[in-house]
Simulated scan of single mutants.
Amino acid sequence: MDDDIEVILQDRRAGLPQQHLDNPTFTACTGALLLGIYRLWTVFALPGFRKVPVNLKVPYLPSSKTQTQNVMKVLRGRRGCLADLGSGNGRLVFAAASAGLRCTGFEINSILTASARTRAWWRGLPACSVSFVSRDFWKTDLSDFNNVTVFLAPGVMDVLGEKLLRELHDEARVIACRFPFPGWPCSTSEGQGLDQVWAYDMRVVRDHLLQAPTLLPKAQTQ
């Protein structure tokens, strides 16, 4: 982190007059600003990270309004329970609940979970409609959910795909935001660029992967 701060300071120095660089007040203010940014990042990104293996850690990145609208388009007509993996501030959960789905947001960052619960209380949403749990979804059985939404880093999509193949039933639908599942056939898609989402029906995914059994988890090929 010290190396990163030094690089930032060097970039800042390159575009500033020398008199500012030699000013102790300016130097102190710049250092305080960088320290404040770092501490803010640790508040929202680090809580809970120690509970997750290094290869599965994903930083918090909120869904955009357009992305959420695209998710709702591919969820149109769906019923039952929805799990939002890495629910963050709860934007997607609230949108899905308004469409009649029973939603659970999984968020390992306890600060974000508390914020989302407060927003749900403020909106008067009953617990049977919306709930937020500070729980590691990697260690949670998701077989009770027939709708799953994910907005995670591309590096974990293969591992997550194996988990979903083991646990979800054939009628379940999975929606991936921004980063698709490698090798999975998409049933429908909405949007483009950073706001694009892909919908996968588990029966279609399994039928496709059965043609290449090595791509399925061991539990699916035995």
Rank of each mutant, 00 (worst) to 15 (best):
D2V: 11
D2H: 12
D4P: 12
I8Y: 12
Q10P: 06
D11R: 11
D11G: 11
A14Y: 14
A14T: 15
P17G: 15
Q18K: 15
H20D: 13
H20Y: 13
H20S: 09
L21V: 12
L21C: 12
D22W: 11
N23Y: 11
P24N: 15
A28Q: 13
A32T: 08
A32V: 08
A32C: 14
G36V: 13
G36D: 10
I37Q: 14
Y38K: 13
L40C: 11
T42S: 15
F44H: 10
A45H: 12
P47A: 15
G48I: 11
F49C: 08
R50F: 15
V54A: 13
N55Q: 15
L56D: 10
V58G: 11
P59M: 11
Y60E: 06
Y60A: 08
S64G: 10
K65V: 15
V71E: 02
V71Y: 03
L75F: 06
L75N: 01
R76E: 13
G77E: 06
G77L: 12
R78Q: 05
G80R: 04
C81N: 04
C81P: 03
L82N: 02
D84N: 00
D84V: 01
L85Y: 02
S87H: 01
G88H: 05
N89S: 07
N89W: 05
G90M: 05
R91N: 03
F94P: 01
F94N: 00
F94C: 00
A95N: 00
A95W: 01
A95S: 01
A96M: 02
S98P: 01
A99G: 01
C103D: 00
T104K: 03
E107N: 10
I108L: 15
S110D: 12
S110P: 06
L112K: 05
L112S: 08
T113G: 11
S115I: 05
A116G: 08
R117A: 06
T118G: 09
T118I: 04
A120S: 12
G124C: 04
A127I: 04
C128G: 05
V130D: 12
S131N: 04
V133T: 08
S134G: 07
S134N: 09
R135K: 10
D136T: 08
W138S: 01
K139C: 09
K139Y: 06
L142Q: 02
S143L: 02
S143M: 03
D144R: 07
D144K: 04
D144L: 03
D144W: 03
F145R: 00
N146P: 01
N147R: 00
V150H: 02
V150C: 05
L152Y: 07
A153Q: 14
A153V: 15
A153K: 14
P154A: 12
G155P: 07
V156G: 05
D158I: 05
L160Y: 02
E162G: 08
L164T: 00
L164M: 01
L165D: 04
A172I: 13
R173P: 00
C177V: 09
C177N: 09
P182K: 10
G183I: 14
W184A: 14
W184C: 15
C186K: 05
S189W: 01
E190F: 06
E190P: 02
G191D: 02
W198M: 07
W198Q: 13
A199I: 14
Y200M: 05
D201L: 10
M202S: 08
H208Y: 09
L209H: 09
L210A: 06
P213N: 13
T214K: 12
L215T: 07
L215H: 07
L216Q: 09
A219S: 13
Q220D: 11
T221G: 12
T221I: 13
Q222T: 12
